[in-house]
Simulated assay, not measured.
Amino acid sequence: MSAISEWIDGQVKGNDVVLFMKGTPTFPQCGFSGQTVQILDYLGIAYQGINVLDSDELRQGIKEYTNWPTIPQLYVKGEFVGGADIVREMFQAGELQQMLEEKGVAKAA
């Protein structure tokens, strides 16, 4: 496992909810990242936002980590959930809220 994969793995396993995104939660740099942030913020979930634009190595590394070609990527309790379209569809169907509840994800303080 490469150093960047190990770092990503540590973030994924060390935080209940992690969003690898373009930009930051307060300043998303793409529409898809922005949509995902809006959903998480609406649900009041505490999450770690990681800006993949900070490093080419990270941007490539996260795609290889999941074998998923697009960003953003959402992880809950170490499990890859999906990108913006999947997160939006799950949210609209109530599945995202249910999954977060079942996994015991805390609301932001």
Rank of each mutant, 00 (worst) to 15 (best):
Ser2Trp: 04
Ala3Ile: 13
Ala3Ser: 15
Ile4His: 05
Glu6Ile: 12
Trp7Ala: 14
Gly10Glu: 13
Gly10Val: 00
Gly10Phe: 03
Gly10Ala: 13
Lys13Gly: 07
Lys13Glu: 14
Lys13Ile: 00
Lys13Ala: 12
Gly14His: 03
Gly14Val: 01
Asp16Ala: 02
Val18Asn: 07
Leu19Ile: 09
Met21Cys: 10
Gly23Thr: 10
Gly23Ile: 01
Gly23Met: 03
Thr24Ala: 08
Thr24Ile: 06
Pro25Ile: 00
Pro25Glu: 06
Phe27Arg: 14
Pro28Thr: 09
Pro28Ser: 07
Pro28Phe: 02
Cys30Gln: 09
Phe32Met: 08
Gly34Ser: 14
Gly34Arg: 10
Thr36Asn: 02
Val37Ser: 08
Gln38Tyr: 03
Tyr42Met: 10
Gly44His: 03
Ala46Ser: 15
Tyr47Ala: 04
Gln48Ala: 12
Ile50Val: 15
Leu53Ser: 10
Asp54Lys: 08
Glu57Pro: 06
Glu57Ala: 13
Glu57Leu: 05
Gln60Cys: 01
Gln60His: 05
Gly61Asn: 10
Glu64Asp: 15
Glu64Phe: 02
Asn67Thr: 13
Asn67Glu: 13
Asn67Tyr: 01
Trp68His: 02
Pro69Gly: 07
Pro72Val: 06
Leu74His: 11
Leu74Met: 07
Tyr75Gly: 00
Tyr75Leu: 03
Val76Gly: 08
Lys77Ile: 00
Phe80Trp: 05
Val81Thr: 09
Gly82Tyr: 07
Gly83Glu: 09
Ala84Asn: 13
Ala84Lys: 06
Asp85Pro: 04
Asp85Val: 09
Ile86Glu: 05
Val87Met: 08
Val87Ala: 09
Glu89Ala: 14
Glu89Val: 00
Met90Thr: 07
Gln92Ile: 02
Gln92Asp: 15
Gly94Trp: 11
Leu96Lys: 04
Leu96Ser: 12
Gln98His: 12
Met99Cys: 00
Glu101Arg: 11
Lys103Gly: 03
Ala106Gln: 15
Ala106Ile: 01
Lys107Thr: 13
Ala108Tyr: 00
Ala109Ser: 10
